[in-house]
Design a protein around this nucleic acid. Structure first.
Lengths: 255, 255
DNA sequence: AACGTCAGTGACGATTCGTCACGTTTCATG
DNA sequence: CATGAAACGTGACGAATCGTCACTGACGTT
């Protein structure tokens, strides 16, 4: 009945990861647009045909890398969600975990964006597309959870005419905008001088939460010291890696 | 002394525009990643060598398209800046002019983003890079102007530890995030159901301005009706074009 | 009329993508 | 253990694309 299985699933998965890792290295070195399948093949102990057995095309490989990257981000978000502390602080923490991710893995951050382009999705396999959706839902779950905690402890109430989903999206798109424009690969825009990504993310997050009426308000509590402590406790390895890259999250320029 | 000039600058400029327009059409039809220099050449009454005289490579052409597009956006922004009305309303109006632009010219909107990638800038000519910076400064000027008007009439005061530039950037990155994630080409993200770009942009802008303490606050004034009128007055042709595309800015879902 | 300069041309080499025909390995079965 | 079918793996190949370069012709200068 069962057709002969020459390779078990674990081995397949392992090879897939090997190919993905090789591709990530190439992207980090040469940039995402200089990634070629030929280069991937030379970095890997398989031939081109085998690589194409795993990924139906270059775009499919990109989507797989994006998924690998979303998995990483999902874990960071989940850690922020689980942290002790009030909901507003944890949401701020979650935004900063997003920033840490973008600083640590700029190539991955960039790939996730690229993989959202319709021509990548259009050329990808069902399998990877479905996994992508699953991972995104997982991300959203952490954000949703924090907002719901805020609603439950009465520090937050839904603004008129808005539901939970809209509130979650507001926070995400805001953080996305700041991080995309100020961190990493995008050439910074003019009038950029003296903009510091961690400071702008902090300020913008707090202005937004104040605008929502999410307590404790900025005027009643300085969130900065607490954030600094929470980051050190929750993401020690990540912060050390950022230091090793010669960059440092700077909290001294705003009290 | 003067070397023989067989072609005047106006003709050169005109040809450049012709090439750019042909490329824009191709992008609208086939997507930006399917744009090839060969296709551009076939659309144009010149040969490949001539096209490469104007643009040192594919990336340089992309940057030129981005500049063309920034010029358009700059005009929309300037119209919003010049509008009569309080500063906060005009800032909201400016964000919506950004949205109109993204809906009307999704291909151009996308190209501006792509052209910010370092490998595009890295392969482009000095001339186009400089023009790009000039155009971005022009954009910023309109935003700056509105914020300064708000400060001058005492409806807005700078939040602690923030300067004008940071305030401008906050507004821009917020609008950028919402529009990028919800309008146009990016495949919408999971948990997207029932998110309407104009509504989220309206809500998020107002929450941010409320968080800044930018008067008149939402609780004292409903900005929706005024926005609707101002848009109809300031961007009639653009709104008609959006209608012609079968899309409509919907203000009924939020009062 | 001879010459120099420059716009314009398109064939060409170099790269890259993805496929396919063929050889090799594995395993169920007799 | 022998056999054959199915899965696995290979790398040469065709098509598409990028960017260059040697060439042509038009025009002004000497």
């Amino acid at each position: 009945m069962t057709p002969p299985k020459l390779l078990d699933k674990a081995a397949l998965k392992e090879r897939e990861l090997l190919i993905i890792n090789s591709a990530v290295h190439l992207i980090q070195q040469n940039g995402i647009e200089n990634l070629t399948m030929d280069k991937v093949v030379t970095q890997v102990p398989f031939s081109k045909g085998t690589v194409y057995k795993h990924f139906i095309g270059k775009e499919d490989l990109l989507l797989a890398i994006s998924n690998y990257s979303l998995e990483l981000l999902g874990n960071l978000f989940y850690r922020a969600y689980q942290f002790k502390g009030c909901a507003r602080s944890r949401m701020l923490l979650l935004n900063f975990s997003y920033l840490i991710y973008a600083m640590l893995y700029p190539a991955l951050f960039q790939t996730v964006l690229c993989a959202k382009s319709p021509n990548v999705v259009g050329k990808s396999s069902e399998r990877h597309i479905n996994e992508n959706e699953r991972l995104e839902i997982k991300l959203m779950t952490s954000i949703h959870g924090i907002v719901e905690d805020g609603l439950n402890d009465n520090n937050l109430s839904l603004p008129m005419n808005m539901d939970i989903q809209q509130l979650c999206f507001s926070n995400w798109s805001m953080a996305y905008g700041v991080i995309t424009l100020l961190s990493g690969e995008v050439d910074q825009c003019s009038g950029r001088t003296s903009l510091i990504v961690e400071r702008e993310l902090f300020n913008l997050s707090n202005m937004l939460y104040d605008g929502m009426g999410w307590k404790p308000m900025t005027k009643d509590k300085s969130h900065c010291a607490e954030l600094k402590i929470a980051l050190a406790e929750l993401f020690p390895e990540e912060l050390a890696l950022i230091s090793a890259k010669g960059r440092e999250l700077n909290f001294n320029s705003f009290s």
